[in-house]
Design a protein around this nucleic acid. Structure first.
Ligand code: MN
Ligand code: MN
Ligand code: MN
Ligand code: MN
Lengths: 241, 241
DNA sequence: ATTAATTTTTAGGTTTGTCTAAAAATTTGA
DNA sequence: TCAAATTTTTAGACAAACCTAAAAATTAAT
């Protein structure tokens, strides 16, 4: 509270007039906003609950409540006690900025440094909080303005606009149809390594040859060359187009 | 204290035996260690005082005292009350790791992203704390294992060994001798931009043509082509070989 | 060699982000 | 519908990293 006042006074004194009221979000606040964004998406636009947030932030519900009060005070979320939260325009903008940085860095780690797509998430979790507009834009350019990250996730542009991607789960595709692998719904190293082992990568063509009645497992033709076995669990987490 | 205990117990429980006692230095601790390293260098190996540290950490002496007690407890510094501090081997190793990352990222920002050498320090101050051994080593390789950063500062290797560099200030070079610009002693954007304006860059050859009796200012021949004026203040902050 | 000035440490507080335990609100379901 | 189960919030604490003010130690000057 007094820290805010000091910031405010500094603005007044340094600029004569208050020009902008920069949000100044901390590392922690950024993480909350990013997670709220992602869980809202996942919920199809519905409010995110305190408990959901506690799980994903690796904290307790009480801690989340504290943070929500604070984010609401900064007008970054819409918060009615006991009713869950959604992001305000401002909160969404910050969240998308963090997601943009996360995904751009992931592209860098894979395309430039040669990391595997299963090794990059934790590093990107750190890099996404580096605060420099110029850095983000120069990195974007250096990478050739990529639209999607190594997992096929869309990268928002500098204004927060997501490139559109029409895709569906492999498990929803009819038999005999040929599709292209464009993304994953799970990012765990175990899942990604499993795909590696089966040589399923972004861009692979997949044609469903057979679906087992018994366990809904698949036999698919990969890249028009080899037949591979895919469990239903995998098929439900592969995005294709 | 109880946090340390918990970490210790986790080690015991997860590993059966305590294998390593990882230091787990925070962002803030890393900054203290880095600054202690640099000020010790500057002091020719002598102890660094509390007040010196307060200046460079942008905090107050009281805060520094607190932190020194803490760092001493972790065996990262040699600290006798009222007598200043030096780094222990362990502290030095961490400091050199942070400096390594800082300088590698600076190379990246200039060589790959096209930043000017006057624009990179603040961004590198953030990037230097990204915690991933693999990232640092892959970045190093990607950059071609550079020995020096964009300011001519030596980059320690993964073991903390600095490449040796024999250089001296331009102000100590005798008249008529031709030398090569290899570094700067001041990193302020103002100074670096001043050098840019005079087209003095790393690798420029400099031959001292004249030194003014009155103000010790220089007229030097730059790259065997143009004569430029250099103040004594500048000459004292240019490293040449 | 004392006293005065300076430096450093300690004492006591604040803020941020976390925690546990307990209270309050909401949801479930008999 | 109303009691039980669940979720969420509040209350009260704690650790990290900072602060100001005051005490203690060191250094400098008469
Ligand atoms: Mn990721
Ligand atoms: Mn990703
Ligand atoms: Mn720097
Ligand atoms: Mn540098």
């Amino acid at each position: 509270m007094s820290k805010n006042l000091i910031n405010w006074l500094e603005n007044v004194l340094l600029q004569g007039i208050i020009i902008t009221l920069k949000a100044m979000t901390s590392f922690t606040e950024e993480n909350y906003l990013k997670i709220i964004y992602m869980l809202t998406e996942l919920n199809g636009g519905n409010e995110v609950s305190t408990n959901e947030l506690a799980e994903h932030t690796q904290t307790k519900a009480a801690s989340v409540s504290d943070m929500l009060r604070k984010l609401a005070e900064k007008n970054l979320i819409n918060y009615r006690k006991y009713q869950g939260v959604t992001l305000t325009k401002e909160g969404q903008y910050i969240a998308l900025g963090v997601i943009r940085k996360h995904r751009l860095w992931e592209v860098f780690l894979v395309e430039k440094l040669g990391f595997g797509w299963d090794e990059i998430h934790d590093i990107a979790e750190q890099l996404e909080h580096i605060d420099s507009k110029e850095l983000t834009e120069k990195l974007d350019k250096f990478l050739g303005n990529p639209q999607f990250d190594p997992h096929g996730d869309p990268i928002p542009d500098a204004k927060g606009k997501m490139p559109s991607m029409t895709s569906c789960k492999l498990s929803e595709v009819p038999i005999d149809q040929t599709v292209v692998m464009v993304g994953v719904l799970v990012h765990s190293p175990a899942f990604l390594q499993h795909l590696d082992k089966n040589q399923i990568t972004l861009g692979s063509t997949i044609k469903i040859q057979e679906i087992s009645e018994f366990d809904k497992s698949y036999i698919v033709l990969l890249n028009n060359s080899q037949s591979v076995f895919i469990s239903n669990e995998v098929a439900k987490n592969l995005l294709v187009k």
